[in-house]
Write a protein that binds this DNA or RNA. Structure first.
Lengths: 126, 126
DNA sequence: ATTTGACTTAGAGTGCGCTCCAACACCGAG
DNA sequence: CTCGGTGTTGGAGCGCACTCTAAGTCAAAT
């Protein structure tokens, strides 16, 4: 039962479109592109799916395509690059954390503004 | 001493570029554009600065230019639009909050990956 | 008097990340 | 045997948010 998924299936499971999956592959984001079935269709394994899920999270947290390509290239070179990959993820992790902090901050300003509107509406019973 | 700021000063204080400030103005993001000095230069008041700061926070939290324009248009129509503006901010606030949640979530997956690398490096003393 | 530098404009250009198109291949159902 | 559905490709196109260019104005400094 493990004879691979179609691109549509991977799209469904990751929330990316089939277009985007092909684009990612062309962009060098898959260290080992999925093998092809008889008719030339991509045949994704669980490992591919897992990788794409990771990519989608990296993307969702603001990593650029170039950043993901760098990560993919390292991953393609196996064990010896573990440290570099770890380093890359740590740097990214830090960026995401500080981005979250920034968002929190921005949110408080927005909340202040919201309070001001609430009071203004109340006072003027608009 | 309150005779207004130059565009460079506002750029410095907001972190936006002068180019971007002009772009925002052209895009209709300033309900009342800054008046011009004798030589046609923009002369921002504190109110303008405050507004631009708010814009930059809305932007930083992912509001689109179109969204900010809508907000600016409402603000330009004064008190009667208070409710609508409040509504707009509340919707945006909710989006930002859920985005932060999503980022947290994504971060845990990245953290897992980081742990895996740490262990792999340790075990294989790479 | 000239040069420097900060500003003005309309409009063109850029970079990113998709997103779609046209033309084609193949499979299974009716 | 045709049709619909799903896939393939290279390359074009798009939307967004800037970002910059060119040509000009003006004030202060040298």
């Amino acid at each position: 039962m493990d004879e691979g998924m179609t691109i549509a299936e991977v799209a469904r499971r990751t929330g990316l479109t089939a277009h985007t999956l092909r684009y990612y592959e062309r962009a060098g984001l898959l260290p080992s592109p999925p093998p092809r079935g008889v008719n030339g269709h991509r045949c994704y394994t669980q490992r591919h799916l897992d990788w794409v899920v990771l990519l989608s999270r990296l993307r969702a947290t603001g990593m650029s395509i170039a950043g993901m390509r760098r990560y993919a290239e390292l991953a393609g070179n196996g064990l010896p690059t573990s440290r570099e990959r770890l380093e890359l993820l740590l740097v990214h992790r830090a960026q995401v954390a500080s981005r979250i902090e920034q968002l929190r901050d921005d949110l408080t300003l927005i909340d202040n503004k919201i309070d001001i509107y609430r009071k203004s509406i109340e006072e003027n019973h608009v």
